[in-house]
Simulated assay, not measured.
Amino acid sequence: MDRNTFTESLTKEGFPDTLLVTREANGEVDVHTHPFESKALILEGEMSIRVGEEERAYRAGDVFHLPANEPHSERYGPNGVTFLVGRKV
């Protein structure tokens, strides 16, 4: 998906704000939650998200969606990752 199409879909789905996030190469974040629903488009690099026993890799052009308060962990690829994320409470 391209950035413009993604931004338009966020607006239609009621995500009021977007944020550009960059994470460093080979970083990790242990299991945590967010008090908001998030939907993100990977712009550069790659990351993996683990929810329960399932881990999924995301690369440029991929979209991920996490409900509010969903326990998950994150791992960032060898070149880090940059993604555009919409958040809504």
Rank of each mutant, 00 (worst) to 15 (best):
M1L: 04
M1N: 07
D2F: 02
D2I: 06
R3T: 11
R3H: 12
R3M: 15
N4S: 15
T5V: 15
F6V: 10
T7M: 07
T7Q: 09
E8G: 11
L10H: 02
K12T: 11
G14F: 03
F15V: 06
D17Y: 15
T18V: 14
L19Q: 07
L20A: 10
L20Q: 03
L20I: 08
V21A: 10
V21F: 05
V21H: 06
T22L: 01
R23Q: 13
N26W: 11
G27Q: 14
G27M: 07
E28C: 14
E28M: 15
V29G: 08
D30S: 15
D30L: 12
V31T: 14
V31D: 12
H32T: 13
H34D: 01
P35D: 14
S38C: 15
K39R: 08
L41Y: 00
L41R: 00
L41T: 06
L43T: 03
E44A: 04
E44Y: 12
G45K: 13
M47I: 11
M47S: 04
V51H: 01
E53I: 08
E53R: 07
E54H: 11
E54K: 14
E55C: 03
R56V: 13
R56G: 00
R59N: 06
R59W: 02
A60C: 02
D62W: 00
D62S: 05
D62E: 05
D62Q: 03
V63Q: 04
V63M: 05
V63I: 15
F64C: 04
F64V: 00
F64D: 05
H65M: 01
P67L: 14
P67F: 12
N69K: 13
P71H: 04
P71M: 03
S73Y: 02
S73F: 03
E74C: 04
R75G: 00
R75L: 02
R75S: 01
G77H: 03
G77V: 00
P78K: 12
P78W: 13
G80V: 05
G80W: 02
L84C: 07
V85K: 01
V85L: 06
R87V: 14
R87E: 15
K88P: 13
K88I: 08
V89G: 13
V89N: 14
